[in-house]
Simulated scan of single mutants.
Amino acid sequence: MTTTQKTRAAAPRTRKIVPAADAQQQILDAVDELFYREGARSVGIDAVVKRAGVNKMSLYRQFESKDALLLHYLEGRDALFWSKFDASLAKHPDAPRAQLMQLFVDLAERTRKPTYRGCPFVNIAAEFPDPEHPARQAVARNKAQLLKRLVALTKAAGARDPAALARGLALLIEGGYTASQTFEPGHPILKALPETAGILIEAACGG
Results as ranks from 00 to 15, higher is better:
Gln137Lys: 07
Ala164Gly: 07
Ala144Trp: 11
Gly175His: 13
Asn142Pro: 07
Phe128Asn: 03
Ala179Asp: 04
Pro131Asn: 12
Asp161Phe: 08
Ala157Lys: 05
Lys155Glu: 00
Asp130Trp: 01
Gly158Leu: 14
Gly168Lys: 06
Asp130Ala: 07
Gly158Phe: 07
Lys143Arg: 05
Leu147Val: 06
His133Glu: 05
Asp161Arg: 10
His133Lys: 08
Arg149Ile: 12
Glu174Asn: 06
Val139Thr: 05
Pro162Arg: 14
Ala159Val: 11
Leu146Trp: 01
Arg141Asp: 09
Thr178Trp: 14
Gln145Val: 10
Ala144Gln: 15
Leu153Val: 05
Ala179Gly: 03
Glu127Ala: 13
Pro134Ile: 01
Leu165Trp: 04
Leu150Ala: 04
Ala157Arg: 14
Pro162His: 15
Val151Leu: 10
Ala166Gln: 00
Pro129Ala: 15
Val139Gln: 07
Ala163Met: 11
Glu127Asp: 00
Ala144Asp: 08
Ala179Asn: 06
Arg136His: 09
Ala144Gly: 15
Gly176Pro: 08
Asp130His: 12
Lys148Glu: 14
Leu146Ala: 15
Ala179Met: 07
Thr154Tyr: 01
Arg167Ser: 08
Lys155Ile: 00
Gln137Met: 10
Arg136Tyr: 09
Pro131Asp: 02
Pro131Tyr: 08
His133Gln: 01
Ala152Tyr: 14
Gly176His: 00
Leu146Asn: 03
Glu174Phe: 03
Ile173Ala: 09
Ala179His: 03
Glu132Tyr: 06
Arg160Glu: 12
Ile173Gln: 11
Glu174Cys: 12
Lys155Val: 08
Arg149Phe: 13
Asp161Ile: 09
Ala152Trp: 10
Pro162Lys: 10
Ala135Glu: 14
Tyr177Met: 08
Gly176Asn: 01
Gly175Asn: 06
Ala135His: 12
Ala166Val: 11
Arg149Gln: 13
Glu127Thr: 02
Gly158Pro: 00
Gly175Ala: 14
Ala166His: 10
Leu147His: 13
Ala144Ser: 14
Ala152Met: 07
Pro131Ser: 01
Arg160His: 02
Leu147Tyr: 06
Asp161Cys: 15
Ala163Tyr: 07
Val151Arg: 05
Arg136Gln: 13
Glu127Met: 15
Glu174Pro: 05
Phe128His: 10
Pro162Val: 05
Ala152Pro: 02
Pro129Leu: 08
Lys155Cys: 08
Gln145Lys: 04
Leu147Gly: 02
Ala138Lys: 11
Glu132Thr: 04
Arg167Thr: 15
Leu150His: 03
Ala179Ser: 00
Ala179Pro: 01
Glu132Gly: 12
Arg141Ser: 13
Leu153Ala: 05
Leu147Thr: 01
Ala135Asp: 08
Ala152Glu: 12
Thr154Ile: 02
Gly168Trp: 08
Leu165Cys: 11
Leu172Ser: 11
Gly158Trp: 00
Ala140Thr: 10
Glu132His: 12
Arg136Cys: 11
Glu174Tyr: 13
Lys148Asn: 07
Lys155Pro: 02
Leu146Ser: 07
Thr154Met: 04
Glu132Ile: 09
Ala157Gln: 05
Arg167Asp: 01
Pro131Lys: 14
Ala179Trp: 00
Thr178Arg: 05
Val151Pro: 03
Ala166Leu: 02
Asp161Ala: 09
Pro134Glu: 13
Thr154Gly: 10
Ala135Asn: 00
Leu171Tyr: 06
Leu165His: 08
Lys143Glu: 06
Ala159Phe: 04
Leu171Ser: 11
Tyr177Arg: 13
His133Ile: 04
Ala166Asp: 13
Gly176Gln: 06
Gly158Asp: 01
Leu172Thr: 10
Ala164Ile: 07
